[in-house]
């Protein structure tokens, strides 16, 4: 019962926590570049400011899809944290991403379209790896339920280290971090799908990004099984790793990204699966 309780608290607080993670990330990134950087609460200032701007849309459907993206992302996160079916979670995750892609396609804006196309391609890049990870977890825990992984006595990391490496390699794609940030690429496509949102409607997309952090870190946490300390350690490690990577690398183009992800990350996860299925 207490697990459900914690999960519900986490779900309700998810946007807040995600905002904090994002704020910390901006500070850490600034410090890595020997800058002072914005205050930790900066994302929330942005949040309040965006709420106050005059409302403006390209057309209603576009803005509405952006809002639904946020809502369905929160819902998917809820299913995930409550220990729902992993396949369902991955599917819902695919669908909420599809909503933002649809929003991108629904306008006649070049950058939005480019961004939507690139987001779609990045889905091709990371989705198979996530699926492989879910399947390997199934092989070990005997259930697709995420709760089975949360309660697994032995950390899954020991049985699927390669899958964890694969996850680390695809997370930058999912979180749109360098070197795999083609989908957002501020200098190229000025934010891609987010471009046409403004004011309170952009807020939905902006906050959805924070939720995506929580989603991704929960994926990392899955590998720790019931070992909470290890889980926190893994998340911290991932946090540092992601920011260091983001600062240290330059953007690759989408072809290189696809090739790398499907070639290296996918194979790693697949080898892990083979080992699991044979042992």
């Amino acid at each position: 019962m207490s697990h459900t309780f914690i999960a519900i608290i986490l779900i309700i607080l998810a946007p807040f926590l995600g905002g904090l993670v994002y704020g910390l990330e901006r500070v850490i990134r600034a410090r890595m570049q020997r800058r002072i950087g914005p205050p930790v609460l900066q994302p929330f200032y942005d949040f309040l400011k965006l709420a106050d701007k005059r409302r403006m849309v390209v057309h209603s459907a576009h803005a509405f899809l952006g809002i639904m993206h946020f809502v369905s992302l929160w819902y998917a996160l809820g299913v995930f944290l409550l220990g729902g079916d992993l396949i369902l979670v991955i599917f819902l995750h695919l669908l909420y991403t599809a909503l933002i892609i649809l929003a991108g396609y629904s306008t006649r804006s070049i950058f939005s379209h480019l961004g939507a196309n690139r987001t779609a391609l990045s889905i091709i890049a990371y989705e198979p790896v996530l699926i492989l990870i879910a399947v390997s977890m199934y092989m070990i825990t005997g259930s697709f339920e995420a709760s089975a992984a949360f309660h697994h006595p032995q950390p899954l990391l020991y049985k699927m280290p390669l899958a964890f490496v694969a996850l680390l390699l695809v997370l930058p794609i999912k979180l749109k971090k360098s070197p795999f940030d083609v989908a957002e690429a501020h200098q190229e496509v000025t934010g891609g799908v987010e471009l046409e949102f403004s004011g309170i409607y952009y807020e939905a997309v902006y906050t959805a990004k924070w939720l995506d952090y929580i989603f991704s870190y929960t994926l990392v946490y899955l590998f720790a099984g019931s070992n909470i300390l290890l889980g926190i350690g893994l998340m911290l490690f991932t946090f540092i790793y992601l920011n260091a990577l983001d600062n240290a690398t330059a953007r690759v183009n989408y072809k290189q990204m696809l090739r790398f992800s499907l070639g290296v990350s996918f194979s790693l996860a697949f080898i892990n699966l083979l080992i699991n299925s044979l042992s």
């Binding site: 409302r55 403006m56 629904s106």
Partner: peptide
Amino acid sequence: AIIAAMFIHFRHVDRTREY
């Protein structure tokens, strides 16, 4: 949501051109 997106129409909101 996708079906509703076809019909939905926000009122009292400015319309702007695509960037």
